[in-house]
């Protein structure tokens, strides 16, 4: 069985509103990042891949199994929803055991699995705590554990690091990388840093469309020659933000070093071409695809 997800010309509607437009993607083993702004259609695509949403047209096969065979898809897919939540008065190990039972794992195996997963996600000491007593980061780790309990071939993780502190975020990303060694992991996020740290292959979505797909290096290469830094007086900042895509600012005394995404060299003093980072490359990708990404507030 080839570990591959193939998405061909997939469209999805909510009533009369189209949410996905002819999505074409091939996702192979390892970490795959789906990057996009809020409302880009990432969650819709994730839910469609998890057989939670019905597509209008197109084809999806997960490791050779058509998405319409929902039972088989569910058996091979682990899903961590964006707003992971569990019955709050259940204990941590109870919650995992319950979801394991729903995944059809026999009782004897379940006990071992629950213990090993809790150890893996570093929750073994909190196994008797109620879900409502866990911190945000712990909950998210429990979320990963529940998604892995039936040892799925595909792991779909929707915005897993939103709201986590930096330490938890790093811990969570490392955990995802670990589990991605033997399966397909699809990570959907609007946080560019998560993708940079974990994914080799990515796709960028906006308004229900795939704007770009490839490797992180290719994305950065695309932006080469379009990222600049300028050292400008602070008073010009509002005007610069109106005219250019500003991806970073560093203030020093009366001057600010701004990082700018632009098709051509900006007409600003002390401007130099800079090596792109992934954030700039992402912004350039959105900009070059015609998205409005200027932060023009005064």
């Amino acid at each position: 069985m080839e570990k591959k997800i193939e998405i061909k010309n997939v469209s999805k509607f909510y009533g009369r509103k189209q949410a996905l437009f002819d999505i074409d993607l091939t996702i192979e083993q390892g970490m795959f990042g789906l990057l996009g702004r809020n409302g880009a259609g990432k969650t819709t695509l994730m839910k469609t891949l998890a057989a939670l949403h019905k597509k209008k047209s197109g084809e999806i096969t997960v490791c050779g199994v058509p998405i319409e065979k929902a039972r088989e898809i569910r058996a091979m897919t682990g899903y961590l929803p964006q707003d992971f939540s569990m019955y709050p008065s259940m204990k941590t190990d109870e919650a995992l055991d319950y979801l394991g039972a729903l995944s059809g794992i026999p009782k004897a195996d379940r006990k071992k699995k629950v213990t090993s997963l809790l150890r893996k996600v570093n929750l073994i000491e909190h196994r008797h705590k109620k879900v409502k007593e866990l911190s945000g980061g712990m909950k998210r780790r429990l979320g990963i554990a529940q998604a892995l309990i039936h040892d799925p071939t595909v792991l779909i993780v929707d915005e897993p690091t939103a709201g986590l502190d930096p330490e938890e975020r790093i811990r969570f990303r490392n955990l995802l990388c670990e589990v991605a060694e033997e399966r397909i992991v699809i990570l959907s996020t609007h946080i560019v840093g998560d993708i940079e740290a974990t994914c080799e292959n990515i796709a960028i979505m906006d308004e229900g469309r795939i704007l770009w797909k490839g490797t992180v290096e290719q994305l950065i290469d695309n932006a080469r020659g379009h990222i600049f830094t300028s050292n400008v007086e602070k008073r010009f900042i509002p005007q610069i933000k109106k005219e250019y895509i500003v991806t970073g600012m560093l203030s020093q005394n009366d001057y600010t070093t701004v990082r700018i995404v632009s098709d051509s060299e900006p007409d600003l003093p002390n401007t130099v071409l800079t090596e792109p980072d992934i954030e700039g490359a992402y912004m350039y990708c959105l900009h070059s695809s015609g998205c409005d990404v200027k932060g023009g507030e005064e």
Binding site: R71, Y87, Q146, H150
Partner: peptide, 21 residues
């Protein structure tokens, strides 16, 4: 409770048949 506690998606994506659940 599934909807109120926002657990529906977790339950829906499990292997168990709807009939059995």
């Amino acid at each position: 409770a599934d909807r109120r506690k926002r657990v529906s998606d977790l339950i829906y994506t499990r292997k168990i048949s709807s009939f059995k659940l």
